[in-house]
Amino acid sequence: MTSTIENNEVVVLKPEKKEPLGVFFWVCVGWLGVNLLAAIFANFLPIWGPQDSNNYVDLNTGPSFSHLLGTDDLGRDILSRIIYGARVSLGVSFGAMFLAFFIGGIFGMYAAYRRGKLDLILTSVSLVFLAFPSIIAVIAVLSFWTPRSILKITIVIAVTSIPLVYRVIRAATLSAATKDYVLAAKIQGATDRRIMTKELLPNILPTAVSFVMIGIASVIVVEGSLAFLGLSTNVTTPSWGNMINESRSVMQVNPWLVLFPSLAMCLLILSLNFIGDRIRSYYDVSEVKL
C-alpha cells in the first residue's frame, strides 16, 4: 500500500530572480546612516556649537579650514548647524512616519482584512481627509498651537499623514488578503490576529518599508516648508528649513548659506527615495512568466 510512487520527486526549484541591490543603493544607505549618526552624536563630534557666534568675527566666510562649510551672517558654523538641523528634520520625519504607520497601518490592515462596515467607515473618513490639503491643516493647527516644539510638529504631521498611510497599507493588504493562503490559514483554525501577523504582515512589509522611506522624504520637505514659513521650531534651534529661511536675506552676499542646507536636504531625500524604490522592487515576489 505504501508504495513509493512518485516519491523523491526531482524538484527543480525556480531560481530566485533577484537582481542585486546595487552599489548606489548601498551608497544611499550609507548616506542615510551618516546623517542619522551625525544627528544622534552631534554633541560628541569635534565641531563648533550651533550657536557659537565666534565673537562675530568671521561672518559669511564661505568654506575655510576652520569652518568647512563656512559661517553665517552671525558667524555661526554652517556644518554644525546642518548637523544639529538634521536632528530636527530627521527626528520629525522619522517620528511622524512611525507614528503614522503605527496607527494608519494597523487600521489599514484591519479594515482590508475584515472589510464590511468598519472598512467602509474608515475608508470614507480617509477619503474626506485626503480631499483636504493637509499642508493647510498643518499650518492652521501650528499657527495656534504655541509654543511650538518638535514633539508638537511631529504629532501634527503624523496625524495628517495617517489617511494616506491608511490607504496605502489597506491597498497592499487587500491584494494579499484575497489570496487563497489566507483562506487556507483560516480553515486550519488560525485566529484573525495570527493571520494578520503571520500571513499578511510579511507580504505587506516591503510595501510598507518602501513607503516609509518615501514618506520620510516628503515629511522632510514639509518640515522644511513649515520652517521656511516660520512655523517650525523657534529660531534658536536650527533646522534645515530655518536655515534656508534665514539665509534668504543674505543670499547675494553669501550663497553658501542657502546652498549647503538645501544640498543636505536634497541628497537625503534622493537617498531615501532611491532606497524605498529599490526595496520595493527587490522584495517583489510577483512571478516573471517564462
Binding site: 489570496k179 487563497d180 493562503y181 487556507a184 490559514a185 503571520k198 510579511p202 507580504n203 512571478e287
Partner: peptide
C-alpha cells in the same frame, strides 16, 4: 496552487 501558499513562508 501558487496562491494557496504564502510566498514569504
Amino acid at each position: 496552487p501558487i496562491s494557496s501558499l504564502n510566498p514569504r513562508r
